[in-house]
Amino acid sequence: MHTFKKNNPAGSGSWISFVILAILWFFLTEANLSSWLVGLPCILAAVVAYRRTRLSSGFSIRLKRLPAFSAWFLWHSLKGGIDVAWRAAKPRVRLDPGFIDYPLTLPPGQARTFLVNVVSLLPGTLSADVEGNVLVLHTLDITVDTHAEIDDAERRVTSLYGIDRSVTDA
């Protein structure tokens, strides 16, 4: 459990997360100085929590690929929202819900966690559980080919994180 110190003797990951969280706080509070009284302890607690729960070695995203990914994500969020709104607006709610197993090719870690969260925001799908390397999805309509959509999402997350597909497939 406590091997993380050996993997990262300089603790640079902690510093980076500290700086990122501090910047977030800075924007959220509109640079209000007295807010740091609350912010600083929260940030320190978050960094400690992050250090203790972090899974395997972290990947970092390719910033160059972030705009394309964001555009794709926004478009699908819009479709997902409209899908739910449309189903709710119909005189009779038409749903054919059920669970689907999706075998993940991404290794455990940041990228996988990110994918699991992204899937919940895609149209019609919700990440219910991860059992080993299988993602258990809940879908609003099991007659739709969800598999292809999640495959596409996984490919995009893989590319965003700059992970070599051939390594993850092995």
């Binding site: 969020s77 819009l78 997902g80 929202g81 409209i82 899908d83 739910v84 709104a85 189903r87 709710a88 709610v93 749903l95 819900p97 919940s120 925001l121 149209p123 019609g124 919700l126 219910a128 809940h138 609003l140």
Partner: peptide, 20 residues
């Protein structure tokens, strides 16, 4: 309010409300 069970209701929350 209209969706039938817990899972489908979570869909409503994560998608429509986030977009809103």
């Amino acid at each position: 309010l209209r969706f039938p069970d817990l899972f489908t209701r979570l869909h409503a929350l994560t998608k429509a409300d986030n977009l809103g």
